[in-house]
Nucleic acid binder design. Structure first.
Length: 256
DNA sequence: ATGGCAGGGCACCCCTGA
């Protein structure tokens, strides 16, 4: 089966593209999405279910919001990081077969001197602590989402331009390494990949055409799942849609 | 050095994103 992640930047705008993409990718069993920007009361549950999918969602007005769309029933759905008192809807988890899926929308951080930056680092620390328990309960675990971290300079179109900025700063990259220390593997780097592979391109300044992007959307796999992973790729096609999201999907193929 | 573009809320300008 395949699992995927996509920051859709408003599900209200992007729902037709999401359903179209799922039709074009029948092997994708579950898609984790971020930035739905919808309160639960306005979530298009009926449209998604009538298209033949199961869905779990947690959202709020204007900002954030996460969901998992699945071809198979989802069980054991939970939202948020239990020990973190946070009104922002950034985490939803569910079990699909024997695989625990954790969908995250990591805070952006805005700028190193913003209040949002320490919030991001604290949030990542709480995520890591919680995942230790979650991994003990669910050895077959996939952490998918928009991490808002470009882990290495090769994940940045112009490292010199980005040096010292949010998304690439050493404390953020250290938080990423702390996640890997839970014995999680970056599925994308398990395989040979083209240089300058990115998952996000700025809307401004012809970012996509210039391939001025970042790789900030990731799929991390626990050790048992990593051994069953046979491919991981970024699907750039939806970035060419009319009214595209600024992010594009990442897909991992699992031999389960 | 700044803004570029896009979405949403709310009210015509601001906030946020990355």
């Amino acid at each position: 089966m395949q699992i995927a992640t996509w920051n859709v930047n408003s599900l209200k705008v992007r729902l037709p593209q999401v359903l179209e993409w799922l039709t074009q990718h029948p092997e994708v069993t579950a898609l984790a999405i971020q930035e739905t920007k919808l309160e639960d009361a306005n979530f298009p549950q009926a449209e998604i279910e009538s298209a033949g999918f199961h869905v779990a969602f947690a959202g709020q007005k204007t900002y954030n919001g996460v969901a998992i769309i699945s071809r198979e029933p989802l069980s054991d759905i939970s939202i948020n990081i239990p020990a973190l008192d946070d009104p922002q809807k950034r985490v939803i988890a569910a079990t699909l077969g024997g695989v625990r899926l954790v969908c995250v929308y990591v805070p952006n951080g805005q700028a190193l001197d913003s209040d949002k930056y320490p919030y991001k680092l604290g949030w990542l620390a709480a995520l890591t602590t919680w995942l230790q328990d979650e991994l003990a309960r669910h050895p077959h675990l996939a952490l998918l989402g928009d991490f808002n971290i470009a882990p290495e300079d090769r994940d940045v179109h112009d490292p010199a331009q980005w040096e010292g900025q949010v998304l690439v700063s050493p404390p953020e990259r250290a938080a990423w390494q702390d996640l890997l220390k839970l014995n999680l593997s970056d599925a994308f780097r398990l395989f040979e990949q083209a240089d300058k592979s990115f998952s996000w391109w700025d809307y401004r300044g012809l970012g996509f055409r210039r391939n001025a992007g970042l790789r900030i959307d990731h799929i991390l796999l626990s050790a048992p799942l990593a051994t069953q992973c046979t491919a991981c790729e970024i699907d750039k096609a939806p970035r060419r849609n009319e009214r595209p999201s600024d992010h594009t999907p990442v897909i991992a193929t699992l031999n389960v």
